[in-house]
Structures are given as C-alpha cells and as structure tokens.
Design a protein around this nucleic acid. Structure first.
Lengths: 326, 326
DNA sequence: TTGTAAGCGTTATCAT
DNA sequence: ATGATAACGCTTACAA
C-alpha cells in the first residue's frame, strides 16, 4: 500500500509537504501542490486512519454534549430515572473523552452557541429540526444519540429498537398470549416509535389485534391510562415503551390488587439497573447503553479527524432478558 | 490517559510483557500476569485502537468474500446487471484490502470452508440462517453486506432503504399523483423488504391506497406483471425495487407505446451507472455503493483486530436523484 | 515555502 | 519468561 513516503518520494518533496497539501494546513506553492496532487492520484493514495488518529492524539478536542429540557426533567427526578439510561451513556462518553484527552462540556440544546467546539453529540428526542439547524450552522461534525430525524442526513447512533420490540412481543405470542397491549411514551421519540412499530408488526404477523395507549412519561399520568384499561377486559400481557413505564404500570396495577405476573405479564425495555432489583424483577429488552455511548464518541472522533465521511445510522443490537415480570 | 507505558511502569515490567498479557500471546508467569492485571485495573487502561491498528498493519489478513448463487446469475448476465451494484461494492472492498495488505478471496456461499480465514464479508440476500451458521462456526468475525437476518446478531452494513423509498414515494405524492404502485423483487431480500415498507408507509401517511406486484428478478418475468397491470387502470406512477426493474418496466411499457414519463412516471433505486445513460434517464435513489464497501471492510478490519466488539447494523444514507423518468 | 526529525501507543523481533 | 527496541504511517514543532 502506498504510504505518505511513497508520495513524497514520487513528488520529490518531504512528507511534511505532502501532509500540508493533504490537510490544507499551510501555504504550499502551486507548483509543489500540483506535483503532490499528481503523485497522490498516481499512487491512489489514501491516508491511513489509524496513523492519522495516532499522530493527532496530542490534540485536545472540545466536544459539546447537547442535552434537552426533557432530560433535564428526568434527571431532576432523581438518579432512578434519567440517570439510569442517559446517565450511563453520558458517563461513558465522558470516560472515553478523558482517555482521548478531549474536553466535553454539557450544554442545553436551547442555549446559544457562543463557544467554539470541534464537534457535538446531541442526546435524545428533544433535538428538533430547528435546533439541529443551529448546530449544523457551525459546520462542525454532529452525532445524534438515541434519536434520528427523518430526511436529515446526520450521523446517528440508536439501539435496535424495532427488533428488540419485535422479539419481546414474539416471546409473549409464543407463550400463547393473544391479548397483548402496548403502552408507550410520545412517538415523536424515534426510539419509542420504532418499539411501537416492532410491537405492531409482531402482532400483525401473528394475526393478532393490536391495541396501544399513549401516556405522558414526563408528567406521568399512567394512573388515568390504567384506569381506562381496567375498565374493559384486562389484557393478558402489556409491552411497555421502557422499564420506567413498566414499573409504573406494575405499581399502579398493584393498587388494584392485580398480581404480576400471575394476572398480567409485563415486559419493559432498556434494562436499566433498577429493573433487576424491582419486585418482581423486570423481563425486558437490554439496551447496551455504554456501547451506545462509546460508539457515538468514536464516531464523532472519526468525523473530527477525517472530514467528508459519508453519514450513517448505527443501530446497536439489543438482547431479550427474561426475568419474573413477564 | 493511561498508556501501556504507565501500566508497565506501575507493574514493574516491560511494555512487551504488558502487551503479552493483553493479548495472551505468549507464556507469562502467573505472578507477573497478576501484577500487570492489577496495574491495568488500577489505571483503568484500555489499549488505544489506532495505535494497535497501526502496529498491526504489517499483518496480512486473509478475508473470505462470500457470494451467492443469485449474484452468480446476475453477474453472468453481463456487467450491466450485477456488476453495476455488487460489482462496485466488491471492487471497493478489494481496493481497500489491497491498501491494507489484506488478501481477499472470493468464495461461493455454498462451498465448504476448507481454508482458514481471518474474517468474512458475506454479500447479499443469499445468506440464509444455515449458511450463516457454517461461517459462525469458524468463530471468525463476519460482516453481512446489503443483507440482514432478523434475530441474528451479526454486524451488517446496509443502505438506508426505508427512508430512501419513503422520500422517493413522497416526492411523487407531493407532485399530486395518487395512483402509485410498487413493483418489487423477492421480499426475502431485506433491502427489497425495507424499500417496500417505505413505500407502504408513505402511501399510508398520505391516506393513499397502496398496490404491490412481485416479480422474479432473476428469471425476469416483468412482461407478465406488466400485462396484468395494463389490463386494469394504468397507474400514474410506478416505484420499482431497483433500477434494473425500473428499466425493464420502461422497456416493456414501450412495447405498448406507453410513454415515460408522459404517461407513467417511474422511479428506481440504486443509481447504478447505467441509470443516468438510460432513455429516459432514470429518476432514482442513489445508494452509496462504494461507501458501503469501504464501511464493511473497515468494520471487518476492526473486528479482526479487536475481539469483543458489540455488533451493530450500519445504514448508509441514500440520496434522491431527480432525472427524467419520474 | 519547504525540510528534518521527534513523537503518537502499540506489536513483534531479537536478545538475554 | 522477560526486556530492548525497531517498526507502523502520519502530524507538527522547529529549522532553514
């Protein structure tokens, strides 16, 4: 494989000069530039990412970590909520940043961008098209974490929500349940939406009737939803948008003396740390939160080093975890 | 950030020894191993990927490139078909492999694996669960290219078929067409399936009736499908599974003196090189074939270097390209 | 404007 | 079983 040395030799210049034209990092005479460009072309040279990354590892990048109002709310509510999901992701990002000598600074999505950053990680569903535009205007690389905006070609990292949901619901179906409902948070969240889609498709596949209820996961009005549900025929199983919702459902159902899993099976999503300690321990779909954080960081790092990388959406595989609740 | 030197210093050994315990690459006495392990733990040390990759770049990996019967057929049919899609992807993989000093060897998916490989890239929809199992049994890393098998947690690289289709169909809807049909290849192909889903959802969103026709893209029985279609009311627009199909449809329609795009609008998918030269030039959704190849290669390379990476599915963003046909 | 050379953090080849 | 040390391919002071 052609290296920068080969190019330098062929062009009759030093490697430093080649690097300069490669990165537009200093003045290079038109003449030399042309020679170098020719050599690059001729040898079909592409700088090796690992070498570049290693050489650049002295550089301290400054990363903006954008959090939304919603997360602010969830976070305030105590570590048991936001902290168990986004908290883990954010912690991993900070740990990796530390190792790479990058500085990460938290900021609210609504804030004005008066500081300069080298790149951004934007977390969660609060990122609207307008907010995104503000960040795009900086011309710095961006990765969306646990969110995705249709039509926007922005790098994003998600869990494999659809398949996780599909498999979980299939598990219930295979156990013979037919009356399975879905309770979910706002479908403006791409993740909730995909979990919802997975539920719908699994039910449709099995020729079962699907039934969904939306609730407000920030204000938590699960009580009124449950009231509505138990007025009719009590379902055999409930698939919830996430573990928090599942736990809220269980707590609410307990008030009516409806036993879990005897009377109703319940499955959550996320596998937050609490899920295992809950009573009963939650059957759920594990989202690899740390991995999501590290993948997002690594992706941003690549983007900050190499410009002009084609954007992608990365889905991190989930894992069904069977415990007691369903 | 802690480096291997820090670990070596703390453990009172050389970096070589640290590397040995890190990679289980040679005999290390239990005592030293323990010291090293302790230091690693203490410093929370993680080897830096770029350094590792660079150091290992002397190593020549041997990669198996698995192709299926279907591709064999398409390929034989001339460069105008398979070569325009998978051909480009495969070429890119080989180019990158060359640059990284890796050897890539093509093999048929059905073949027995008598040779030893360091990793595999498996291309297209012919990869069944059984075939996959054979490759998994080697315990070597695998990446699936342009295919995905539900429930199998194998790294895969795809184009963003769903959104590409969704946007293309929306384009037609926004132009005011209502009678838009979809002609597709076998839905066992995950890509065709997702394009199909995108069409269905776009139609549903607009409260339009969807109508699909499946045909056999290997045998090419488009004539009987078209016959069936023109017996009824001729649609305003046709969204095809891919460019090949779109071109076949146009050719067939020409036989009936049905003009494109005057009478019927047609949109393809892939943007194969021919699409632009066709008469009329094809409106289509561009799939970034080279990028898919390079992403797949890079992913496999990572997997071959670092074991124990969490598997992901990578979707490469597509781009709508407006030409004459639709 | 250009060249020289010292890193960046690992692995791997020799020695010992 | 372990240690020295030369790669790996690029960037970036510092010199010229």
């Amino acid at each position: 494989m052609a290296t920068i040395d080969d190019v330098a030799k062929l062009a009759g210049v030093s490697t430093a000069t080649v690097s300069r034209v490669l990165n537009n990092t200093a003045n290079v005479s038109e003449e030399t530039r042309a020679k170098v460009l020719y050599a690059i072309e001729k040898l079909n040279f592409k700088p090796k990412f690992s070498a570049k990354a290693l050489a650049k590892s002295k550089k301290r990048f400054k990363i903006g970590l954008g959090l939304g109002k919603r997360m602010q709310l969830l976070r305030d509510e105590s570590d048991e909520l936001g902290g168990q999901f986004y908290g883990i992701i954010v912690r991993e990002i900070k740990a990796l940043a530390m190792m790479h000598g990058a500085i990460v600074k938290e900021l609210w999505l609504e804030d004005d961008l008066y500081e300069k950053f080298d790149g951004f990680i934007l977390v969660g569903l609060d990122v609207t098209r307008e907010i995104l535009k503000k960040f795009k205007d900086t011309e710095k690389p961006i990765v969306l974490l646990d969110h995705y905006i249709t039509g926007e070609e922005i790098d994003s990292v998600l869990s494999d929500n659809y398949n996780g949901a599909f498999c979980a619901v299939n598990y219930l179906i295979n156990k013979g349940y037919k009356d399975i409902i879905h309770i979910h948070g706002p479908l403006t969240s791409y993740s909730f939406k995909r979990r919802h889609d997975g539920y719908i498709d699994a039910m449709k596949n099995a020729k079962l009737k699907s039934q969904c209820y939306e609730y407000d996961d920030v204000k938590n009005n699960i009580d009124v939803v449950i009231q509505k549900i138990i007025k009719g025929k009590i379902p055999e199983a409930i698939f919830a948008s996430n573990d928090i919702t599942a736990m809220r459902i269980i707590s609410e159902l307990k008030k009516y003396k409806i036993g879990i899993p005897d009377k109703v099976k319940i499955i959550g999503f996320d596998d937050i740390p609490m899920a295992k300690k809950f009573n009963p321990p939650l059957t759920t779909v594990k989202v690899f939160k740390q991995e999501m954080g590290s993948i997002a960081f690594k992706r941003l790092y690549e983007l900050m080093l190499n410009e002009n990388i084609h954007p992608t959406r990365i889905s991190v595989y989930t894992k069904f975890i069977r415990r007691k609740s369903g």
